[in-house]
């Protein structure tokens, strides 16, 4: 039905001749934009309702005094469902540490939460299919668990700013939400998020459509294909500064994959975009000393690159 609509826009409304590059690009653009925006609206609403059951305050209670390993796994999983924005990374970090969540477990949460986020997953699902989306979840969780375990092992508590350990929190008596609150919260969240991401989606799909229609087949195969061992680390490097634009980058990457970019490279790039971001590091600098931030970035970059190589080798 969506395809029929996209066809109608392209061939009837805009009178573009079938089979031309322009028609191809326009058709691709209309179809993908509508599909992704619809998916985003519906799924974000549903995810928000689920999330209303997992406040950071509750997650903190669940994780407090958890052991290594089991704690890292639970933290990585809770990272998927707990609502989190990098603007509240600082209070969240302090809150976790204050209630006795081990440092490594806290990091597992901090890695998985932005990386395995709903926008990235929806876009991956919508454009690449559910298999790639699942792979991405699996890879993200693995990186989060391993990263947290390593940081826990390294005993880096002294690399956390001292004042963090002095904060005392009150147990806030926070009212339970009823279903009406949950719907309202979910609707509000969906509206805000769509308002924020739609320009990126449209621009991203636009660029993707252009590549789809105009770039020669296989033009990336030489540079970003399996045979180039530098492709994965390079993709990770490029991914770091592209913060929070999962919505805009995924359609572009999708088009690049059609032109020969290997899947492991694609996933590594995506993970670098979502998990490693300069603004988040700057925010985290308020609670972490530079050495710990450097270790954090290093571990993530290495494990994301490893995951990229692994997928390129196996798939």
């Amino acid at each position: 039905m969506l395809q029929a609509f996209a066809n109608w826009i392209t061939y009837q409304a805009l009178h573009l001749a079938r089979g031309t590059r322009l028609a191809d690009a326009v058709n691709f653009f209309v179809y993908d934009t509508i599909k992704i925006l619809l998916l985003l609206a519906v799924i974000i609403f549903l995810v928000s309702i689920i999330r209303s059951f997992f406040s950071p305050e509750r997650t903190r209670k669940l994780l407090s005094h958890k052991k290594q390993f089991a704690g890292n796994i639970i933290a990585a999983l809770l990272g998927i469902v707990t609502p989190f924005c990098s603007c509240s990374a600082v209070p969240l970090f302090i809150g976790f540490v204050e209630s006795g969540v081990p440092l490594g477990v806290t990091f597992s949460f901090l890695i998985s939460s932005p990386m395995v986020n709903e926008v990235a997953l929806i876009m991956l699902w919508g454009l690449f299919g559910w298999k790639v989306a699942l792979l991405y979840i699996g890879a993200g969780l693995t990186v989060a668990i391993i990263g947290g375990l390593v940081i826990g092992r390294l005993k880096l508590e002294k690399e956390v700013e001292e004042y963090v350990f002095q904060v005392k929190m009150q147990e806030a008596a926070i009212a339970e939400l009823n279903w009406k609150d949950r719907y309202e919260y979910a609707y509000q969240y969906m509206k805000d998020l769509l308002k924020k991401v739609w320009p990126y989606v449209v621009v991203g799909i636009g660029v993707g459509a252009f590549i789809h229609g105009y770039a020669p087949q296989d033009f990336l195969a030489r540079y970003a294909g399996r045979s180039n061992p530098l492709a994965v680390p390079l993709a990770v490097l490029i991914g770091v500064p592209l913060y929070s634009n999962a919505a805009g980058t995924i359609p572009i990457v999708h088009a690049l994959m059609e032109k020969g970019m290997a899947i492991g490279t694609v996933l590594a790039f995506m993970m670098a975009v979502t998990a490693l971001s300069l603004p988040e590091m700057i925010i985290l600098r308020r609670v972490l000393k530079p050495k710990l931030i450097a270790i954090f970035v290093g571990i993530l970059a290495v494990s994301i690159t490893a995951v990229g190589y692994l997928f390129n080798a196996v798939l």
Binding site: S55, P56, E57, R60, P83, C87, S88, P91, L92, I94, G95, E98, V167, K168, M169, Q170, E171, A172, I174
Partner: peptide
């Protein structure tokens, strides 16, 4: 944080 709030 003294109010027990982590999400602003």
């Amino acid at each position: 944080m003294s109010y027990g709030v982590m999400s602003t």
